[in-house]
Design a protein around this nucleic acid. Structure first.
Length: 723
RNA sequence: GCGCGAUUAGCUCAGUGGUAGAGCGCUUCAUUGACAUUGAAGAGGCCGGAAGUUCAAUCCUUCCAUCGCGCACCA
């Protein structure tokens, strides 16, 4: 036998070392052209398409990226081997606000600030930064083994994207679904931009709740610093305690900075159960107050400026940061004898910026809004009609709930980095006009001068049209016709509203078709104790480091096994190590099989013995079970099953049982039959494993003799079930 | 406030209407044997609590407890 070892490729004589093979194998795949469905071999009638969630081009890949690349690549490789015309559209996201924040932090470190730069300078610098990150990230996606079609790659600022986004913007206006209006918006005093409700996080807090004497009433508030302009006192029309007061009644009273005239407003929004049942309102700085003011056509005035400082209406407090002002205002009211009492244990939730945690200051702002109700209703009908489905069914209810209670969408952000809004705004009356051609020179309403809208689109507004963009909707290629709607949308469940819901609504709106048939949502990747990864905790696991240490295949397996669709998963380096060992196991199995078949006797078409037949049946049963699990998107269970088959059945039983046959010098049918079985087990295992562990399986495949293979590349070999 | 999920081995988690599974960890033994990135054997669980349905419940139903998450304009 030692002589025959010379026939085994030398690389099998030492343990599998991923770093020696991964790059060259990826190049081999890429050079083959098979990432592009147009080049795939054989007759392929059925299409399979996935749109890759374009990673934010502002840093390196994190574990979540590694997970989605793995899941989607498994789907792609499985379907490609199954004979489908499979395409995976890669991309990169400029990620508007997110990237601008990353860049601002970089500026801060350099002692600079975006508020000292011109808009153009800032944009240019962020563009350079983003493009550099983009190519770096693409390298990382490659290193994870992603079999996506790079020839179809798209960036969210490409002309093609901007055109589609502008067309949608225009069409929304034409259809009356777009409007510009003064509404209460979620304003972050630090980031100087407004947000949609989704970008606001609510933080539970226990804070003092103050009761003040307001003329004959006692009013309650958690935010005394907003109260300077309060001149309306609101109560429920049916509240018997205040029946003596009439709607519209004027009352003279002493307030923070002197006597004022207050007006009684009876409105259903006054909750008799809450506090004293009486409140004063600050329409400029509260959404609910703004609604009341609108209903009764009341005045409203700004109290707090855009940076969170009190305006001159606050008189002696003017210019003070509201975070410092509250206590002082309460002191003054107390000194004036207007403080009734304080409830120190008031529990409420405070809206905060999802990025910096600073309290959101509601501000009235002229904004572009999309009227979402009509779009949401269509999405819900499509779901009712089963035009698309969720793999993780429990997310369907969450999805329905959000769409049923959807708010209008403010799509403008006050930042430089993004697709600029093609619109003019009147200097005089604030009227906004969509102006794609850039030829509006005066206000259509009042004839006044106009200026370019300085805002950019919410990045999700363009991302929401991503499936249209990558499939070249309205373009010259056949991709839209061939691949839209796409087969699966696979992404994180944390962006079900931000992205998935918007893609469905905007895709339906533009094309009358939901952009994907099936939605597979994965959970978050956490550290080994189930804790959220964060820089401050120092528990961040960088995929690239794991890849270096254990190999990409091991990382992919660790991310898949036990990862139930839709639930969070923990990533433990020890678990990755287990699959590194597994890759090596496969390596040594191959060494044994090649060592046992160097004489090529198996080519004589031997008659299988009774045991051979039993073992082959087990292989076939396993193959069918795995195929069924893959078909049901249970890649976690499929991965576990093939792992156990290879280790516990193939290596532990079949190989052990085969040694006696292989060693028998007599040769003969029994030995040849067993050789054939070993080869079958090996090639089938490689195929079944390939979607999960593409590198090691392809590396091995490349070393197998031609007589064992049905294809040059394992990547396009026939899936075993397809025999 | 509304909704969702979880509770199974020391740790992190799968799974099933009929003597409980994985990875890691632990114990003991083995080593010129495809593989020490190994092999064999083993310890370790009244499958959160209570009630119900059933011949049978870790699994289905209800309630409770604890933890986690999502949504939400309550002054």
């Amino acid at each position: 036998m030692s002589d025959e070892k010379t026939n085994i490729p030398k690389l099998f004589l030492s343990p599998y070392s991923p770093e020696d093979h991964e790059n060259r194998i990826y190049e081999l795949w890429e050079k083959s052209g098979y990432f592009n469905p147009d080049n795939l071999p054989g007759e392929r009638t059925e299409q399979f398409s996935i749109v890759m969630p374009p990673p934010n081009a502002n840093g390196s890949l994190h574990a979540g990226h590694a997970l989605f690349v793995t899941v989607q690549d498994i789907m792609m490789r499985f379907e490609r081997m199954r004979g489908k015309k499979a395409v995976w559209f890669p991309g990169a996201d400029h990620a508007g606000f997110e990237t601008q924040v990353v860049y601002e932090k970089k500026l801060e470190k350099e002692g600079r600030s975006r508020f000292q730069m011109s808009r153009e300078e800032l944009y240019k610098e962020i563009l350079d930064f983003t493009l550099a990150n983009k190519s770096f990230m693409e390298g990382q996606i490659r290193s994870l083994g992603a079999s996506c079609d790079w020839s179809r790659e798209l960036f969210t600022l490409d002309d093609k994207v901007v055109k589609i986004v502008y067309d949608t913007f225009k069409q929304l206006e034409t259809d009356g679904l777009l409007y510009r209006g003064a509404r209460s918006s979620n304003w972050c005093p630090k980031h100087q931009t407004s947000f949609s409700n989704l970008e606001v996080e609510h933080e539970e807090r226990t804070e003092p709740f103050y009761y003040f004497k307001y003329g004959p009433f006692v009013i309650g508030t958690a935010r005394p610093e907003t109260k300077f302009g309060d001149k309306y006192v609101v109560m429920h029309p049916d509240d018997a305690r205040y029946a003596e007061y009439e709607h519209g009644q004027k009352i003279e009273l002493e307030w923070i900075n002197g006597p004022i005239t207050a007006t009684v407003i009876k409105d259903e929004a006054g909750d008799p159960e809450m506090g004293t049942g009486v409140m004063t309102i600050t329409p400029w700085h509260s959404g609910i107050d703004f609604e009341i003011a609108k209903r009764h056509n009341l005045d409203y005035e700004q109290i707090i400026d855009w940076r969170g400082k009190l305006l001159p209406i606050a008189e002696e407090f003017a210019g003070m940061d509201i975070r410092d002002a509250r206590k002082k205002i309460v002191e003054k009211l107390e000194a004036k004898g207007l403080l009734d009492h304080i409830d120190e244990k008031y529990n409420h939730s405070v809206p905060c910026c999802y990025k910096c945690g600073r309290e959101i200051e509601p501000q009235i702002k002229e904004q572009w809004f999309v009227n979402m109700k009509p779009l949401a209703e269509k999405a819900l009908s499509a779901l009712d009609a089963k035009k698309f489905e969720f793999v993780t069914e429990r997310d369907e209810r969450v999805f329905r709930h959000w769409l049923t209670n959807i708010d209008d969408w403010p799509i403008a952000r006050q930042i430089a980095w993004g697709i600029s809004i093609p619109a003019k705004v009147c200097d005089d009356c604030g009227h906004g006009m969509v102006d794609i051609e850039n030829n509006v020179s005066s206000c259509a309403k009042c004839g006044g001068n106009v200026h370019q809208d300085p805002d950019t689109f919410d990045t999700w507004f363009s991302s929401g049209q991503w499936p249209l963009c990558v499939t070249d909707f309205g373009g010259e290629s056949d991709d839209f016709k061939n691949y839209y709607p796409t087969s699966v949308m696979e992404t994180g469940k944390d962006i079900i509203f931000f992205w998935v819901a918007r893609m469905i609504m905007l895709g339906l709106y533009r094309t009358q078709k939901v952009p994907f048939k099936k939605i597979y949502l994965h959970g978050m990747v956490r550290d080994k104790h189930g804790k959220k990864m964060s820089k401050s905790k120092g528990n961040v696991i960088a995929p690239s480091e794991i890849q270096e240490k254990y190999g990409t295949d091991a990382l992919r397996m660790a991310l898949m096994v036990n990862n139930v669709p839709g639930t969070d998963m923990n990533l433990d380096p020890d678990k990755v190590n287990a699959y590194k060992k597994f890759a090596n196991k496969l390596w040594n199995i191959t060494r044994f099989v090649l060592d046992s078949t160097t004489d090529h006797d198996y080519l004589n078409n031997p008659e299988p013995g009774a045991v051979d037949t039993i073992l082959r049946n087990e292989l076939e049963v396993t193959t069918q079970e795995i195929d069924a699990l893959m078909d049901k998107d249970r890649f976690d269970l499929a991965a576990e099953k093939i792992y156990h088959f290879v280790w516990d059945k193939f290596a532990s039983d079949i190989i052990e049982d085969s040694k006696i046959y292989i060693k028998s010098d007599g040769g003969g049918n029994a030995r040849q039959a067993r050789q054939k079985l070993l080869i079958e087990c090996l090639t089938t295992s490689l195929k079944l494993l390939h979607p999960f562990m593409p590198f090691v399986t392809e590396t091995i495949w490349q070393e197998l003799p031609e007589t064992m293979k049905d294809s040059e590349l394992l990547m396009v070999a026939k899936w075993p079930q397809d025999k």
